[in-house]
């Protein structure tokens, strides 16, 4: 029996006027795979993630999430997107974010698991505060919390380690590993070459084109993106 890929793109391309942000891209990522997306600034990593999340519309080609067209309700239910710029409500506390957004995605709300996650991310003492008053790092932790406390099968993560301290990075690496172990598919855009040791596959982009797709060592990644 053929497995339905978690993510499949066909001739996916994005351009802004005469600027090609992403050249036509055919990609297939199977369930449970963890993938690192590497490349220099402006190489198209964030564009690809946003296209898969449904935040950007392709100029050409299409994206399927578990066989459903991106943007459909089924695809939106499957994808959790952790952006590099946390976007949170100004007037909801951390706990309220989890409560309502988890339920919005069919989750249980702020249950015991979510409370545990709040603690692991070091937000227990700030759980009833408004993230609008948080530092960059705490807002990033809140975004991670919101993204992980809802059901998903494809986790898209854009520059997850930016703004996090050493403890925060360690926790996030553990959480990403747990998500993979639980069967989720991961697509992580990062500049941290060491992260490629933790994934099954590495896709390197340069000027919107794939220049490498397969396993890679940190040293190879440095050579690819420099």
């Amino acid at each position: 029996m053929t497995t339905v890929p978690t993510l499949r793109t066909h001739a996916l391309a994005k351009s802004y006027g005469d600027l090609d942000a992403l050249a036509p891209l055919d990609l297939r990522i199977d369930p449970g795979t963890s993938v690192a997306l590497v490349g220099h600034n402006g190489s198209g990593k964030s564009t690809l993630l946003k296209l898969v999340a449904g935040l950007l519309e392709p100029s050409d080609g299409h994206v399927e999430i578990e066989g459903a067209e991106v943007g459909s309700i089924a695809a939106r239910a499957a994808v959790s997107y952790l952006p590099d710029d946390p976007v949170l409500y100004d007037d909801l506390s951390v706990r309220e974010h989890v409560e309502y957004l988890s339920r919005l995605h069919g989750g249980p709300g702020c249950d015991a698991d979510a409370e545990d996650l709040i603690g692991r991310l070091g937000l227990a003492h700030r759980a009833d505060d408004l993230p609008a008053r948080f530092s960059r790092g705490l807002r990033q932790r809140t975004a991670v919390l919101v993204g992980l406390s809802r059901p998903f099968s494809l986790l898209l993560v854009d520059e997850p380690f930016v703004g996090l301290d050493a403890g925060g990075k360690r926790t996030l690496l553990d959480l990403l590993a747990e998500a993979t172990a639980a069967g989720a598919t991961l697509l992580v855009a990062t500049h941290e070459e060491a992260y490629v040791d933790r994934v099954d596959r590495c896709i390197a982009l340069r000027d919107g084109e794939v220049i490498h797709d397969g396993p890679a060592t940190p040293g190879e990644v440095v050579a690819l993106v420099s």
């Binding site: 935040l55 309700i73 997107y81 976007v87 409500y89 069919g106 919101v146």
Partner: peptide
């Protein structure tokens, strides 16, 4: 639409 609504509601599995 508020930015957080775009990210959380329009990208959520809601009609």
């Amino acid at each position: 639409i508020e930015g957080a609504d775009v990210r959380h509601v329009l990208l959520g599995p809601v009609d």
